[in-house]
């Protein structure tokens, strides 16, 4: 099967944050890749390192506390961890962009919608003001903002939350990036608006071949949006693979547990399943598998060493890091 090359490839990414409790690795050896037109979902609970991973991809981790200390991010053939800050500014918004979680706070309250979209375009394109404004109107029309010609004069406080999130979309997509990171973009929206917004992203993706990295903790959104999923726990990817595989055949106990915590329409249960215990503190990481203290199937091995990554025999690039896979048909991953 011939497949196009990934537009973004993350290899062994490590991001360290200095905290009062000492330095922690919020992202610890994360690898994944996304092809044009594909969507990768990154799921995990709060504090699992999803958002720091996202910010690392833009080299926008909060300075000076956080620092990317290892790995590579190959975006469109270029390792962006090695380029200069000036080059990185061209890449940000130009080749890779991001939609933030809360539309209420993502737009600058003192500038018009138009000037904010224009700025996003003008940063990457030298053109006359007239031309820039036309492009901004086009970008707003693209994300289905009604009457964009009139709306460019508006200020953020004159728009609804859903409309604002569309504007954020127009800003992110204004310079036709190849990769879009969406950090829980619909969490703050009403359910109906949420569905519309997800559909909008899918339509734009179908049109432009955009690669999307979708960060969420909502498996419903994953099922709807994503082709592949990476499950993160305590700064590491514990399992990744095609969406159907993960849903029908989860290999890692954490993924299984997460999936059983999702309410189902078919089953009527008194109490939802919940994983016992708390995620480990970053400054007090277990030596072995990080999920071991909460895992029902933990063995002595799990507490001693971090498990290697095993690949599924199905040949679907379904991988998981768990000692329980050691003596099965799963094979140790080469990479």
């Amino acid at each position: 099967m011939h497949q196009v090359a990934p537009v973004i490839e993350v290899q062994n990414l490590e991001t360290r944050i200095d905290t009062k409790m000492g330095p922690i690795k919020a992202v610890d050896g994360v690898s994944f890749s996304v092809r044009p037109g594909e969507t990768l979902g990154i799921v995990g609970e709060s504090g699992s390192g999803k958002s720091v991973t996202a910010l690392s991809l833009l080299r926008l981790v909060p300075k000076p506390a956080a620092k990317i200390v290892g790995g590579a991010i190959i975006l469109d053939g270029e390792d962006i961890l090695t380029v200069s800050e000036t080059r990185m500014r061209d890449i940000r918004g130009g080749k890779i962009s991001m939609i933030l979680q809360d539309p209420q706070t993502s737009l600058n309250p003192v500038f018009t919608i138009g000037s904010q979209v224009v700025e996003a375009i003008a940063t990457h394109l030298k053109a006359a003001q007239r031309e820039l404004l036309n492009r901004a109107v086009e970008a707003l029309r693209h994300v289905r903002v009604a009457d964009p010609k009139r709306r460019v004069e508006d200020y953020p406080h004159q728009m609804s939350g859903g409309m604002k999130q569309r504007v954020v979309g127009a800003i992110a997509l204004g310079s036709n990036p190849k990769v879009l990171i969406a950090d829980e973009p619909t969490t703050a929206l009403d359910v109906t608006i949420q569905a519309q917004y997800l559909q909008l992203l899918k339509d734009i993706q179908a049109e432009t071949g955009l690669a999307i990295i979708f960060i969420t903790h909502d498996f419903g959104v994953v099922a709807r949006m994503c082709d592949h999923v990476a499950v993160m726990y305590a700064g590491r990817v514990v399992e990744q693979g095609p969406v159907q595989e993960i849903f029908s055949n989860p290999a890692h106990p954490y993924t299984k547990a997460l999936l059983s915590s999702v309410p189902s329409v078919e089953e009527d249960v008194e109490r939802l399943y919940s994983i016992r215990g708390q995620p480990p503190a970053f400054w007090d990481m277990p030596k072995g598998c990080r999920f071991a203290p909460r895992c029902d199937q933990a063995m002595s091995k799990c507490e001693a060493d971090y498990p290697p990554t095993y690949e599924s025999p199905a040949g679907t690039q379904h991988c998981a890091s768990c000692w329980a896979l050691e003596d099965t048909e799963w094979t140790p991953s080469r990479s």
């Binding site: 926008l60 940000r92 130009g94 962009s97 933030l100 993502s106 600058n108 309250p109 003192v110 500038f111």
Partner: peptide, 26 residues
Amino acid sequence: DSEYVKLARIKGVPEWRVVWVHALRN
């Protein structure tokens, strides 16, 4: 520390403009 300053950086806006225009005006 606000999200709109983060978004300005995501857009690729130069840092001096982020500080003296986006942030200071607010």
